[in-house]
């Protein structure tokens, strides 16, 4: 008796999926930083309410996001590494890149600041001091937009950090939040985007130590995957989303998003 009941319960569970397989949706592949900051949860429902189109978000580092988009496994790409974005469009994978918003990167580190970088105007000087004092630094190490930005700053500072990998330079190979967890546990310096940092709960002894260098500018771009290359791409709905997020309503929603009272992203779409 019990057995029959359990079997029925099990079979019902297995074969009764949630309804709504026919719902209208697009797949957006984007960076972990925008997702971890909580922005999507806030603004995407507004788009869905207006258009009836749901947005399925897959969050991975910029490198993998571009790879997924190139394979045609998404409809819209939203990332933050301009050179990769331009290459993606030039390669015939994307229709056009649109500005969406920006925020900035910051350097966080242990509150006792062993490399003494607090208040430095130049972030490359800051990294140089971290290297000179061999203070622990955690890198994303995952080919993400943030990782690429970090590598470009090391290059500007004239330091080959990869040579010290495994010593004071640690490559986590992880998303932004996971890397902050690692940095908080060591504790170590790391480069983070401001949105994820504002939202991040497990700070431990980490403090914001360097910011406001123009080098730390972090612009996001949105691109429709080219339906000429991947005919199954939902071009109309994808374009509707891009029009919305770069239009009046989307831009206002981005500007209105606050994390603990602070604006996390600044809209900059060209009209």
């Amino acid at each position: 008796m019990t057995r029959r009941f359990l079997m029925t319960a099990l079979l019902t569970l297995v074969f009764s999926g949630p309804a709504g397989a026919a719902e209208k949706f697009i797949t957006l592949v984007g960076t972990t930083s925008t997702d971890n900051s909580g922005l999507y949860e806030k603004i995407l429902p507004l788009f869905t309410a207006k258009s009836g189109i749901r947005v399925r978000v897959v969050s991975v580092g910029t490198g993998r996001a571009i790879n997924i988009a190139r394979n045609g496994d998404a409809d819209v790409l939203l990332v933050h590494h301009r050179p990769s974005e331009d290459k993606f469009v030039a390669g015939g994978y994307g229709v056009k890149r649109h500005d969406v918003m920006y925020n900035d990167f910051i350097i966080v580190g242990p509150k006792n600041d062993p490399a003494n970088i607090q208040g430095l105007k130049s972030v490359s000087d800051g990294l140089a001091q971290i290297a000179a004092t061999k203070s622990a630094f955690v890198s994303r190490g995952d080919d993400s937009g943030t990782h690429k930005k970090e590598l470009s700053i090391w290059r500007m500072a004239g330091i080959d950090a990869a040579k010290s990998s495994g010593q004071w330079y640690r490559e986590a190979g992880a998303g932004m939040g996971a890397t902050l967890n690692t940095a908080a546990a060591m504790p170590a310096y790391t480069l983070a985007d401001r949105g994820t940092w504002l939202k991040f709960e497990n700070r431990g002894d980490l403090r914001l130590l360097a910011e406001n260098d123009p080098l730390l500018f972090n612009p996001y771009g949105v691109i429709l995957i080219d339906p000429k290359r991947h005919p199954h791409v939902k071009a109309k709905m994808g374009q509707a989303f891009i029009d919305w997020i770069t239009g009046q309503e989307g831009q206002t929603a981005i500007a209105a998003y606050r994390i603990k009272g602070r604006q996390a992203f600044f809209p900059n779409a060209k009209r």
Binding site: T32, N36, A174, G177, A178, N181, A184, K199, F200, N202
Partner: peptide, 15 residues
Amino acid sequence: VMTTSIALEVSKGNL
């Protein structure tokens, strides 16, 4: 699912 939400909350620092 359960395991991916756990991974997500860890990455947000909501231990």
